[in-house]
Simulated assay, not measured.
Amino acid sequence: MCNYTMNHIQIGVLSADNEGSEFLGNSWGKKGTSTDITIYTTKNQQFLQTTIIPNGFPKKMLPLIITAHMSDAVVLGVSKIGLDHYTGEMAILADCLNLPGVYSVLGDDTIGLNLYLDQMKKAFSKLSLSNWDGLMINNSKGFIDAKEELYSKYKGPRGDLDKYLAIEVDHAFPVQGVGSVILGTIMSGTVTKGQKIVAYPSEQSGQVRSIQVNDEEVKSASVGTHVGLALKGILPRYLQRGTVIATPNEDKVIETQEISNIQIKKAAFGKPPTIGQRIHVVSGLYDSPGEITGWNSTASIKTDKMIPYHPDNRLTILDLNSKPAVLGSKQK
């Protein structure tokens, strides 16, 4: 058993084409946990790579937001029928989150559809996506080129190795003979076997029984790594998606219903919200309805539910009754 130190990159596939997304996911790794998002993993000399695809978008926005919030870089993919308003929604989200990436036409039969790449380049000209490359990812060379481009844009994890511990849970379930098991991304710090922890917002206390990375048991894992943890003392119902696992008495990880003066990148398109307007907030991977309490150079919000919050999390504000739905995202 060792301390896990390999670089880990999480690549999200932002697409309304479920078939094309699944084609890319299967081409890039072994299929793992699948709910409203599906996770694929593969390992090479440079990285342990996790690929995440949203299931159910465009009928549901949340899988798309969760995928983007988990990602270090993204592939923005259109289907073989071309660009639509969902393409714009995905582009606005990637722009607000300042995500690096590439754009592509997804699927195994996309020969002759390069014209869509030119259309995307023109459509994204006013966004940060204007400096992305357009690639056809429909053969072995395309898969390699896309990986190399995404790897080259990876600047490292958002958080720091030596700071507070924050693990954002994406899945939790009971395992007979083991107890509660979670899958999650270490957004900051290092987790160690035997470490005492607290889950927010439930404030349930427990202990790390064991740690796995890519089905390999390890003594510890650090920021940027997608891990599986077996936990002692906390039931799965207190570990729902978006729960943040931290160390006891850590003041950087909080639970709150009010966040003020958020430095936010506003959506380049769409109508700005008004004070008192009902919204939906995704903080890390935790979501809640809420309302706007301030919207000028910064944003202030109040949520219906208590939500976990920490300095290195992502936060996106949505109006689910509007197109585009994305209003803006927190800047680090």
Rank of each mutant, 00 (worst) to 15 (best):
V13D: 00
Y116N: 05
V281T: 04
I144Y: 15
T225N: 03
Y151T: 07
T87P: 06
L76M: 12
I182P: 00
E203I: 08
P157I: 07
D251S: 13
Y200V: 13
G233Y: 03
T303D: 05
Q176S: 14
V191I: 11
G12R: 00
Q176C: 12
G77F: 03
G184D: 01
T51S: 09
G189N: 05
Y116E: 03
V281A: 02
M70D: 02
K60A: 14
T87F: 03
R158H: 10
A172D: 04
H69F: 11
G12A: 07
K155R: 13
I65C: 07
S128G: 15
D118W: 13
H85S: 15
I307L: 05
Y164L: 10
K193D: 02
S152H: 13
L285S: 03
E217I: 10
I245T: 02
V227G: 04
E217P: 03
E255K: 09
Y154S: 07
F143S: 03
Q176G: 14
N7A: 10
S210I: 06
S202W: 06
S222K: 04
G224V: 02
S202Y: 08
L117G: 02
S79M: 07
V105S: 02
A73L: 12
V326W: 02
E291M: 09
G32S: 09
E148A: 15
T5K: 14
I301V: 10
Q119Y: 11
A246N: 04
N98I: 12
A146Y: 06
G12D: 04
S210P: 03
E217D: 10
L315V: 08
A123H: 03
S322F: 07
L150M: 15
K302R: 12
S79L: 04
K80N: 06
Q263H: 09
S128V: 04
Q195D: 06
L106F: 09
R241P: 00
Y309Q: 01
P236H: 10
D108C: 13
V75R: 00
Q176T: 14
G194D: 08
